[in-house]
Design a protein around this nucleic acid. Sequence first.
DNA 1: GTCATGCTGATATAGTATAACATTTTCGTT
DNA 2: AACGAAAATGTTATACTATATCAGCATGAC
Lengths: 177, 177
Amino acid sequence: MTDRHQDLAGGFPETDHDHASCVDEALDRAVAICERRQVRLTPLRRRVLQAVWSSHKPVGAYNILTMLTNERGTTAPPTVYRALEFLLENGLIHRIESLNAFVGCTKPGQDHAWQLLICRACGRVAEISDGKLDHAIADAASRAGFILQRRTIELAGLCSACRDSGPAQRDGDGALV
Amino acid sequence: MTDRHQDLAGGFPETDHDHASCVDEALDRAVAICERRQVRLTPLRRRVLQAVWSSHKPVGAYNILTMLTNERGTTAPPTVYRALEFLLENGLIHRIESLNAFVGCTKPGQDHAWQLLICRACGRVAEISDGKLDHAIADAASRAGFILQRRTIELAGLCSACRDSGPAQRDGDGALV
DNA sequence: GTCATGCTGATATAGTATAACATTTTCGTT
DNA sequence: AACGAAAATGTTATACTATATCAGCATGAC
């Protein structure tokens, strides 16, 4: 299956894509995957997944905490972290180590090797799954006699949209767009 | 120049290497690099670099803070973080994003692309600089129309020494050896 | 209905990092 | 040697990120 929203600008979504359906599709896929895996996508977990998917930018645990607190009254950190842990374990989100934040996985349930492209101008993250790159990683590990268990591949720079549009634009929050 | 301590087990140091000279060499290289770059390797910065080099395992900022506090009386976090920032800027150490910790750079002053292998059994970190892998990264970024500014490549697994020696060994601290 | 299990709530605390301002050191210039 | 600008360090306070622990509730198997 090809995700039509993700295929244009080198893995970054089109700037005018229909994000609501983006989120809906992610949630639908999550439902199917959790059913298949016999794990429970509870309302809380579903809500946290939706929060991670609220944009294509990294979302921090405490951002989510704030959303939940606004919606349902005081919520404590473990509530969010446990949901995030569940979503990570089930391959529904990725953690961005260099930002202490999370993004939705665009290929859940496919047990893939992924790499993240993080645009420093607009703040968006693209997930790619480059076979040659992953092969090179496996080779390098193999040459070192290293048994590879987990890859953290985070590439920061400028996405193709921002590359051409000069200095970074910022949105009303002061956050990178 | 080849670093004889680093070349055997796939980038990991020999288990019985002379670590004191390992540290000495790192400090000597740092002195030379800072002189060349016209930046100041003050006693504090030198001491923090030495602390990062105290083993081939990742060292946390607060580990260093404790060492300094023991040696010279109460020391505040910014003291350590500023020194670490200096060392990062000058390519003398690497930050491991997935562990919030630091390791000494084995090729300072050479403006190289590096990748880190992190052994989950013994806790040691090897720095490799695999040209093919870096080329694959550049290619993948290029295909995505992405301008690459910073690479975070952290591979976790088992080093060749631990691969063969069964379950993880732990040292007296409870820390991974 | 009871029980075991898993999930969530709640409190407390640990671990990581930076902002802001004060003081000291360094070094080139006078 | 004294001065002044810039860099480095000291100091205090606080922000941000994450987990341990125990209590209560929901779910599903029997």
